[in-house]
Design a protein around this nucleic acid. Structure first.
Lengths: 118, 118
DNA sequence: CAGTATCCGAGTGGATACTG
DNA sequence: CAGTATCCACTCGGATACTG
């Protein structure tokens, strides 16, 4: 324990992986393997029932790329085609995302069941 | 899979456990078992090098309490003494928090090592 | 000690329009 | 298709002061 002097590992993970839409993005990447830009918008809209703007999506993807978690592959075609996929390092987030999905589902179970009981 | 129609488990977990200071709070609760209000301020200051205001801390703790993750025990003394601890349900976040700590440490290792190498 | 109340500036992120 | 650019309303959360 007490690695790295006094830099907080929790804070580190939060700032890199748990900002805004990043966990959802990682979730879909773990699921689909490869995802295109517009596909992200669709997937996110479907799973979260919320809309992510292009600006936001771009920003989040860029940050993930800069942190070495995803690749951005640009196909020089017309119309443009860009694919995103996890780097090996990005794949190390698998367990974490799985835990999050699991916990979320458990909580939803719990919440939904607690009709009637009190 | 595909539990709960189309409510996103990732979003659910994020909204309950990963807002602001909550993961750090949970982290310290898993570590210490029982934590007092002022102790939280100290622990958080030490581990994150940031200051959490009373307002923020109160708010976060209240939300965690309302979601059934922690207990708030008030000792009717003067001066007041309030202790926080995880409920059984709160304890189910252990694996997740551990994963986050682990990943954070790994990332810090990686980052620190990548001096010189490239 | 463990909060509550108020004020307010900075930053976030949505909406919208434009581009290669 | 996959972005970029701009504008701005709104929220968030820090600072500060007060309280049982």
């Amino acid at each position: 324990m007490m690695s790295h002097d006094n830099i907080c590992p929790v804070d580190t993970t939060l700032s890199i992986l748990f900002k805004k839409w990043k966990p959802v993005i990682l979730f879909h990447l773990h699921n689909q393997g490869t995802v295109r830009f517009s596909e992200f918008q669709r997937l996110i809209r479907l799973s979260t029932k919320r809309t992510i703007t292009k600006k936001m999506l771009t920003q989040q993807l860029r940050e993930l790329e800069e942190d070495g978690l995803i690749y951005r592959i640009i196909y020089p075609e017309v119309p443009p085609k860009v694919e995103y996929l996890l780097t090996d390092y990005g794949k190390t987030t698998k367990t974490m995302i799985e835990e999050i999905v699991k916990w979320g589902n458990d909580h939803l179970d719990k919440t939904i069941r607690s009709n009637g009981t009190s």
